[in-house]
Amino acid sequence: MKGYLNNPDATAKTLTADGWLKTGDVAMFDEDGFLFIRDRVKELIKYKGFQVAPAELEAEILTHPGVADAAVIGIPDPEAGEVPMAFLVPAPGASPTEEEIAAHLSDRVAHYKQVHKFAFVDAIPKSASGKILRRVLRDQVAAG
């Protein structure tokens, strides 16, 4: 890729001086050398200078037996910058509470990764490929 058409700023943010393309993916290698894509830089929640990956919180929330599906976004906070908010779909026949989910997370993730707000929903908005539509959730929060 040579760059974005008529958009030098976007090109400068995406291509490094030595020709590398910055994809915006957060990746890691495991002990066997396998590469795993974990999240997107644009989706990271910035909490008091820490970066919180929504996918990590979602994975931990989904280990709770009362939760069928989950999505996490960052919502604005005047003190912290952003705080994690979780949207939860209860498992059939389950009625988990915010307190139960918070207690479930308390020993599983660092203090700065704790979810600050919860919303119980019927479904998580997803694209045709199954990707969580975080923009839709952010729009719902903004609309009240």
Rank of each mutant, 00 (worst) to 15 (best):
A71E: 05
V41Y: 09
A70Y: 03
A71H: 04
L62R: 15
E82F: 03
F34H: 14
V89A: 13
I61V: 07
E56F: 02
L62F: 10
M85V: 00
V67E: 01
F36R: 13
A68C: 10
A71C: 05
A68Q: 14
V72A: 01
P54T: 00
L62I: 08
G49A: 11
T63D: 07
Q51H: 14
A91H: 08
P76Y: 09
K48H: 12
A80W: 03
A91Y: 07
P84R: 04
F34N: 15
Y47Q: 14
D39Y: 09
A68K: 14
D69I: 03
A59N: 10
E43Q: 13
L88N: 02
A80K: 08
V72D: 06
G74C: 00
V72C: 00
F36D: 07
I73S: 01
I73P: 00
E82D: 01
A68P: 07
I73F: 03
D39E: 15
K46W: 10
G66C: 07
P90C: 12
I45Y: 01
V72I: 02
P76Q: 12
H64W: 06
F36A: 10
K46Y: 11
V67D: 01
P78G: 10
M85P: 05
E60T: 05
D69T: 02
P92W: 06
R38P: 02
A55V: 03
M85R: 08
D32I: 10
M85E: 06
G33W: 13
V89G: 12
F50H: 15
P92D: 04
G74H: 02
P54H: 04
R40H: 13
V72G: 00
I75D: 04
P92S: 07
K42I: 11
T63G: 06
E60V: 12
V83E: 04
G66Q: 06
E56W: 05
G66E: 02
F36V: 02
G74P: 05
P84M: 03
A68F: 10
A70K: 09
E82V: 02
Q51T: 13
L35I: 09
